[in-house]
Design a protein around this nucleic acid. Structure first.
Lengths: 362, 362
DNA sequence: CTGAAAGCGCTAACAC
DNA sequence: GTGTTAGCGCTTTCAG
């Protein structure tokens, strides 16, 4: 029946007083460190109980220099990729006794730089960053200099000697392209939201190190091996930013030499592309074949079921967190670069080119 | 070209020394409070720059008692509902200068209690909680007692005098049920993951205050008004926990008097239900009509497009954060209970009952 | 084992 | 305006 009024937490001092011991002893009993007699410990714990004592983690962190908190910086938490990876990070961190501070950058570099600084200032014990594409690494150097571990998610920064966890993309993309080629598709469109500042794609354009670069490399190899020229005119970057996905799709399926297959670089793009195709009355796979990166529950339920490249997203989160925790624990070994296996799931959205006629006559 | 070695951050003391001023003056200049001459300020700022000074937010928080951080407790960040709401919370908090600590409870009460305590111990300035269904409010009382504001998301706790933000569900559910009834459906199945401990649903079962209760209330009213008995045997709770969604769906569409329409209480359930229906060869809407709560990009792209109840998820997040920030700012007015409008989006997954025959003969 | 006292890095009185 | 002196709540020497 205390009066309501807020403020003033009970501190170790309060507990110590009630338990009739020194502040230091109370703190030891409460914090579970140092030497304390059973007698004292129980008295202190009892006092803490009646006083409803809860430690001030801020004060504790200040002394120990460790906050039992990790920071996570992602581009867009609403994107299923990140929310699932986040779940993996979360589960693993929690199991290790760490809390998670989440920062969303909206895929903006300035925000990312800010985010990293904020986390550092809050003294997180380490962080996981999914860097915006084409960012440099200067802001992450500050983290490295601070001595706190970082692990990169979904991206590798060659200039930065830190751990990274990505999904294997080159090989699986090669397979995907082979599949398309096998079905007779040589006019394959590729839509990505990778921001390259609005320039057109060319073979010698440096996209930096990121999943898109890997995918394109795999696809290119398949085309090269097949002796087919990669249709660079159908590779469209900057989707959603410089250009609307709808317009991009529209452009791919019309024109004199249209794409016979479309590859969506992620599920968000796929959804918009699918909507546009439906709006335009373009049928899958009769008029155009469709393949997307990322497996989601709805992909197999569409009509037709969508062929996808599935990457182990949750596991990427788990792996990133596991490595980070190991580093926080003191592991000073060489940076590790994990590439988790992805796989192609063939469903029915990819069909032989020209099957529109077949379909119509069937 | 400093040597690598970690540790030891530069502090105000370091900056003060270099700038040849007192620690207090340096702190004032750095923190942007109190009175400082331009002369001193620039000297301090310059020193801070060369020393790469970054404030220790922990220390700052300890003195001010404010951490500029809010905590968010959700059931499952992987669920699109939460990740989108989180985005709303995030955007709003950030605009107000607050960071966000995310805690995921996995819809587990013990974890939720823990989460709330952790946040309190970390001295967050306030928190947003989407309480697990059917939880009591004792753990949240501690927050209220601490004097820090909480706002409830997607759930209202009558016993707790705090703000809440939910989506209006009773009216829109009434409309949805009306729609179903108008199409001739009286055998309407309802699948929810609401955990009621495995008991069967009956009309007098107390489900507590939560969206499901509201939905059922709205549906019931529509049935009552139409003079049709609510098919309580087709209302299945505990989906995903006590029973697999697939089994539940299977049970609804088979048996002597099967459901002619199925309502999925959220998108996760809908996806599993849809998969099961497809597996079982049950066609929508020919064999069974389908309606789901929550609008997602893929819903309209399915074949047929799914009729949904859309709730303003992002806006709920925004509203919750806005109220919280106002409270943190000192607003002591009466608790506010916001119910944002939802709406029924009619597409093609709901058709007149018995349209299977019509469809077959067409 | 226990207690007194000295900080962690910062802000907040309080004097000058 | 500026500097000095206390703390915030906890951990950590350092003596006993």
């Amino acid at each position: 029946m205390e009066s309501s009024s807020a403020s003033r937490y009970t501190t170790v001092a309060d507990v110590a007083r009630l338990a009739q011991v020194s502040k230091a002893q109370a703190a030891r009993a409460l914090g579970g460190y140092g030497a304390v007699s059973d007698e004292v410990r129980s008295r202190v714990l009892a006092a803490a109980e009646t006083l409803q004592y809860h430690p001030n983690e801020l004060a504790r962190s200040m002394n120990t220099g460790r906050s039992k908190t990790i920071g996570v910086v992602v581009g867009d938490i609403e994107n299923p990729y990140f929310s699932l990876a986040m779940r993996g990070i979360y589960d693993t961190s929690k199991a290790g006794g760490f809390d998670v501070i989440l920062i969303n950058t909206g895929e903006d570099l300035a925000t990312e730089i800010d985010a990293v600084n904020v986390l550092l200032d809050k003294r997180v014990d380490g962080m996981i960053v999914a860097p915006v594409t084409r960012s440099s690494s200067t802001h992450l150097n500050r983290v490295v200099d601070s001595g706190r571990p970082v692990v990169l998610l979904d991206r590798k920064l060659p200039s930065l000697p830190v751990d990274s966890v990505v999904a294997e993309m080159r090989q699986v993309s090669y397979e995907a392209a082979r599949h398309l080629l096998d079905e007779g598709h040589t006019r394959v469109g590729y839509i990505s939201s990778l921001d390259v500042g609005g320039v057109e794609f060319t073979l010698d354009l440096d996209l930096g190190t990121n999943p898109v670069t890997e995918r394109l490399a795999g696809i290119r190899r398949a085309f090269d091996e097949a002796g087919v020229a990669l249709p660079t005119d159908l590779i469209r970057l900057g989707g959603g930013k410089q250009h609307s996905i709808g317009d991009l799709v529209q452009a791919l399926v019309t024109g004199p030499d249209p794409a016979t297959a479309i590859v969506a670089s992620d599920s968000v793009i796929a959804l918009e592309a699918l909507a546009e195709l439906q709006r335009a009355g373009v049928r899958i796979p009769d008029d155009v074949s469709f393949l997307m990166f990322d497996e989601l529950p709805w992909a197999g339920l569409m009509t037709p079921p969508i062929t996808v490249v599935a990457q182990p997203v949750y596991d990427q989160g788990v792996a990133a967190a596991a490595i980070l925790l190991r580093r926080i624990g003191g592991d000073r070994s060489e940076p590790e670069h994990l590439a988790l296996p992805s796989r192609l799931i063939r469903r029915e959205s990819v069909a032989p080119v020209g099957s529109a006629i077949v379909g119509a006559s069937a």
